[in-house]
């Protein structure tokens, strides 16, 4: 059983919902990423999603774009990101880590080599935003052979056929994009999301995480009625933007705490 499967199984046994928190690796500085990851786990993250900075993040809104640019300005590469995960694993062997990024840095390193090194570093899942199922059959199969869960996005516009294809190729969980737009958009319609989830549930046994546009404890709580996990990314980065270095971890904890409490209430 993968670390992601184990985590969802134990949460389900406790009748709790997963909180997935996102950090862009190397933002605002490579030195802060590993302490921040530990801080987020202490504040209540069940799974960590680590963004791999890319020069052209087509599916991301301005907040994650800025985070990516700050990390790239510090020269953060995919190899550095794997190194951060390796250092995180030295102290935390239980919390699943999912990398989220774009195809080109991976293809530049070589898909096979990346998957092998990611597995060895302690990565558990991979979200490659611009690898839809039809372009990455081999990649997904190779990831699975190395014990990594290929995680796919589903959108409000995904047809039943595409949901079935994601159910077939993906593992770990499926990531339902809660709105039409980019990450961090402001027009989340919770009822619309909740209405879509049973259809996905009927097509796959995989847990469903919901993200894009979830900004506070109230919306997280409402989404969690239908989902197995909620993902918070842009709003968290926004909270940390401009914070003095020594306050980063504390700010993150203060922001996350009420969300965790709302999910567990």
């Amino acid at each position: 059983m993968s670390r992601i499967q184990a985590r969802f199984a134990s949460l389900q046994a406790e009748r709790r919902k997963a909180l997935i928190l996102f950090v862009t690796a190397g933002d605002p500085d490579p030195a802060f990423t590993v302490p921040l990851m530990h801080g987020l786990v202490e504040a209540g993250a069940d799974i960590l999603e680590v963004g791999v900075p890319f020069s052209d993040p087509m599916a991301d809104g301005p907040v994650i774009q800025r985070a990516s640019e700050r990390a790239l300005a510090k020269g953060v590469s995919l190899r550095d990101v794997l190194d951060m995960v390796r250092r995180f694993r030295a102290r935390d062997t239980a919390t699943p880590v999912v990398l989220m990024g774009y195809a080109n840095p991976i293809e530049s390193m070589g898909e096979g080599r990346f998957i092998a090194e990611a597995g060895e570093a302690g990565v558990d899942g991979l979200i490659v935003v611009d690898y839809p199922p039809e372009e990455c059959g081999e990649f997904a199969a190779l990831a699975k052979r190395h014990g990594l869960d290929p995680i796919f996005l589903l959108a409000p516009t995904s047809t039943a056929g595409r949901v079935a294809e994601v159910a077939r190729l993906g593992s770990g969980f499926v990531y339902y994009v809660s709105l039409k737009g980019v990450t961090g958009s402001g027009h989340l319609d919770v009822d619309e999301v909740l209405a879509r989830l049973p259809g996905i549930r009927a097509a796959t046994q995989l847990p469903i995480g919901v993200g894009f546009g979830i900004r506070d404890a109230a919306s997280a709580r409402r989404i969690s009625r239908g989902a197995d996990a909620v993902v918070i990314a842009s709003r968290l980065i926004q909270e940390l933007e401009g914070a003095p270095d020594e306050q980063l971890v504390e700010r993150a904890r203060t922001f996350v705490r009420p969300i965790r409490e709302a999910l567990d209430a």
């Binding site: 087509m58 195809a103 611009d130 839809p132 959108a155």
Partner: peptide, 12 residues
């Protein structure tokens, strides 16, 4: 070539 985009664009 191909279609290397996020799921959100596949339908369009």
């Amino acid at each position: 070539g191909g279609v290397f985009v996020a799921e959100t664009l596949m339908h369009a």
